[in-house]
Structure formats: C-alpha cells, structure tokens
C-alpha cells in the first residue's frame, strides 16, 4: 500500500480526482436521467455548503434557508422577464437581495440576543412570511406561479441560460467546487477562526476580543449571499417558480439534510451528504415505481428516519470517521504541523 506522508496533499489529490470524475463522466455517458439526478445532487451539495458555513462554522442554526433560494430565484427571474436582463447580471442582484435579507434577519436576531432555537424559529418566520407575501405579489405571478419564456432569440445558449441540462450541470459543478474552495479559504482566515470561536462559546469568544455580533452577522450575510445563485440556477433550469415551492419550509429542511448526514462543520461533508442522499432518494423512487407502489410520503419518511438516526448515533456525520479511515483530515478540523 502506498503511504502518502502528507494527508493534506493526499486530500487535495483525492479531491482533484473526485472533481475530475464529476467533470468527465457526462462526456462518456450521455443519459438525460443521470444528468438530471446529478443536477439535483450538485444543487443540494452547493446549498448545503452555503448553509453549513453559517451552522457548521459559526454555529447559527437557520431553518429558513430556502428564503435565500427563493429570493435569488425570483430576483433573477423578475429581471429577466420584466426587464430583459440576463442571469449573468441578474445573479449579482440576486446575491445582493439575499445578502440584504440575511443582514436583516441576522442583524435583528443577533442584535437582540435571539439565540439557538429561537433564532431558528426567527429564520422560519421570515421565510414563511415571505412565502405568503409572494403568494399575493401579482407582479411576480402570485400563487399561480411565475414563468420564464422558453424560447430564446440570442445567439449563445449559455448567455441567457436557455441551454440543455448539461449546461446547468456544468454550471452547478463550477458553483459547487467554487463554494468548496471559497469556504476552505475563508475558514483558514481570521474570520473563519472567529466563527468557530463564537460557535464554541460566545462569552469566551468575546473575552478573547472577538466582536460576536459582527462575526455572526458576517456568517449570516455570506451564507445568504452564497445560497442565492442556487436559486438563480433553479429558476432558469425549471423555468417556473411557485412561492409554495420556492419558499416552503420542507425545502429548508431538505436543504440541510446533506450537510447533517455528511457532517456539520466539515468542508467535504455537505458534498458527501448530497452524493449519498440524492441517489438514495432516486433509488427509492425507482424501486417503488418498479414495484408499482404509489406512496408519496415514503422518501421523506426515510429521510426523516435517517435524520433521527444520524443526529442520535452519528452527530458528527459520515465524513469525519470516513476521512479518518482514508487517512485524511478535513481542512476544517486539521491541525497543521509547526
């Protein structure tokens, strides 16, 4: 067996290989179904990563993260439909709107000392409030839905994201990998250390000179901003938006499953969680179809059982023990040598 001396280097090599496989396989296997599953998988990996930044690193539980997906989706879609502004510009507006929402929620919550479960409820309340609001916003279609035109008069399919699923797959791949690298960079910086200090013990963090409010706010704003592009991609991939889907609470919960299963507070956990969960869900769906059983709640029930089991029996998730077995550390938890 080859013993690579440096786990960090080995980790980089393995991650590079993983990224390469994700980049290359669609070229060999041209299967619309597999591409659609992979799109779902990467989407959840990306939003899970963005959520994990706030919960895993800064310790702030958000159960309303679909708010930032929805706001991102509607912002970019509205700019496209009503003003003819394409998604490549729209995404920046989406990021700005989501960041502003994150700043409002984080600002209010953290300024007034809303902590833990109460903060989680605050995030749900904002998401639900917005959902009902959008139900009545006729300019954006209200509860009847908001639709993006399918036809495209531009020259290039990627300019307005009016292309085939594979285009979205590669877009999501770049987004997911980019988020991973960004998170890796941020947690190695002072801000990342401050996040972890605040996550572990706010009073002790404050006594170590950390401005707890600003540190938490930075996490809320960044996490919101980085979630928004997932909304934009969703809007242009599905071409329709409904408040009941875009802002639904069960979406918020679905979004956090991958990082919980993979490992809260790790870098690779959210990706691993999505790699495990999405195919599992698809297998369940296919299995039921094959058996001609129509049970709409089964997949969610299995996810629920999985959530309970992971939280009870493996609270640090699947990745940390797996990483140990592979002789790797996660950059989020690794101690560099002197």
């Amino acid at each position: 067996m080859m013993a690579a001396p440096d786990p960090a280097r080995r980790g980089r090599l393995l991650f590079g290989g993983f990224a390469l496989v994700l980049a290359v396989w669609p070229l060999g296997i041209d299967d619309a179904y597999l591409v659609s599953v992979a799109i779902t998988m990467l989407w959840f990996a990306a939003v899970g990563q963005a959520w994990n930044l706030m919960m895993g690193f800064a310790g702030q539980l958000s159960l309303g993260h679909t708010l930032y997906v929805g706001l991102g989706a509607y912002t970019a879609a509205a700019l496209y439909v009503h003003f003819g502004i394409g998604p490549w510009i729209g995404v920046w507006a989406a990021v700005a709107v989501a960041a502003a929402a994150g700043a409002v929620i984080g600002g209010l919550g953290f300024r007034f000392g809303v902590r833990g479960v109460y903060f989680a409820l605050l995030t749900i309340a904002f998401a639900e409030f917005t959902r009902i609001g959008f139900d009545h916003l006729d300019w954006l279609g209200g509860s009847a839905g908001f639709f993006l035109p399918l036809d495209h008069d531009g020259a290039l399919p990627w300019a307005d994201l009016r292309g085939p699923p594979l285009l979205f797959y590669y877009l999501l791949l770049a987004y997911t990998l980019g988020l991973f690298l960004l998170c890796r960079a941020v947690i190695a910086r002072p801000l990342g250390y401050r996040w972890r200090a605040v996550r572990e013990d706010q009073e002790a963090a404050a006594a170590s000179g950390i401005n707890v409010f600003r540190t938490k706010l930075a996490a809320a704003v960044m996490s919101a901003a980085l979630t928004a592009p997932a909304g934009v991609i969703q809007a242009f991939y599905y071409n329709n938006l409904f408040p009941d889907q875009a802002f639904a609470m069960h979406r918020s919960i679905e979004m956090i499953l991958a990082p919980i299963v993979g490992g809260i507070g790790t870098l690779f956990g959210p990706i691993l969680g999505a790699v495990v969960l999405t195919p599992l869900g698809e297998a369940l769906t296919l299995g039921l179809e094959a058996l001609a059983i129509d049970l709409p709640g089964l997949k969610q029930t299995v996810y629920g059982v999985l959530l309970v089991v992971i939280v009870l029996r493996l609270p640090s998730g699947v990745w940390p023990p797996l990483a140990r077995r592979l002789g790797l550390g996660d950059a989020a938890t690794r101690t560099p040598d002197r």
């Binding site: 919960m55 159960l63 989680a120 919980i260 709409p296 029930t301 996810y303 629920g304």
Partner: peptide
Amino acid sequence: PEHRQFLALVGVAMVVMNGLLM
C-alpha cells in the same frame, strides 16, 4: 446541544407527517 434536539425532532416530524400521508 440545542440544535441536536431540534434536528432530531425535525426528523420525527418528517416521519410522522409523511407516515400520515402514506
């Protein structure tokens, strides 16, 4: 930790609701 309680019961909620749905 608070968030663990909360998330486990979120899981229970999913099971009960979807169980009722089934």
